[in-house]
Amino acid sequence: MKLINVTTKNRIRKIVVYAIYIILLSSLQVSFPERISFLGQTADLVFVFVVLSGYFNGFWDGAVVGFISGMIRDVFSPPAVVGLDGEVRVTAFVGVFTLFAAGIIGASFFTRRMHRNIPFSIVSVIFVTVCYKVAGYILIYGWSNLAGIESSLYEPLTAFVYSFLPQLLLNTLAAIPLIVLLRFLGPVSFRDTKKDDEIIEQGESTWLGI
């Protein structure tokens, strides 16, 4: 007699594997950051993992993995921000916001058209990293103006050379072992995903969704 059917078994396996990845990567990220740093930037293992989960396994996986990883990030190393009253405070939910957004963006670009193939997963990591950095700088600039504080932001060229480039390099390098791990330990299924192509009908035209 079967107590659990195959679908439930697979689902439980998927949850367990995701949980192990999330705890392990989140812990490594904050326990030994100096070992994965270059030019003042740190490879964001959790961020890359969330993007890859979204890219390979779809919207809901990206969203849920991003949400949970974000909560753990908010516990382990939340950002401290100068509040409207000028006091520096530890924030909550900025990590959840960031990684949830990373998960759904990772699940939404270059997925269908590229059939979730491996080379484009790296392009996806690069694309979401650029989005994260640009959004981060815009948010800091906006918040500094709103709070009336003097922001010590990088000049655009300095930001590109010392923030964007090292982060892109590190995240791209981090993506390679993570893809290998996801490929051999799961929970990603690298089956033929051509049938997932989204066909958009617009009047007499037919478009392939990307």
Partner: peptide, 27 residues
């Protein structure tokens, strides 16, 4: 316990809190 995880998530966590006598009032 943990260090900064990237450029912006940058606070440090210690293993001592209120139960160890580190009680902090607002401000």
């Amino acid at each position: 316990l943990s260090r900064e995880s990237d450029e912006w998530f940058s606070t440090i966590r210690l293993n001592a809190g209120v139960t160890d006598g580190i009680a902090l009032e607002e401000g």
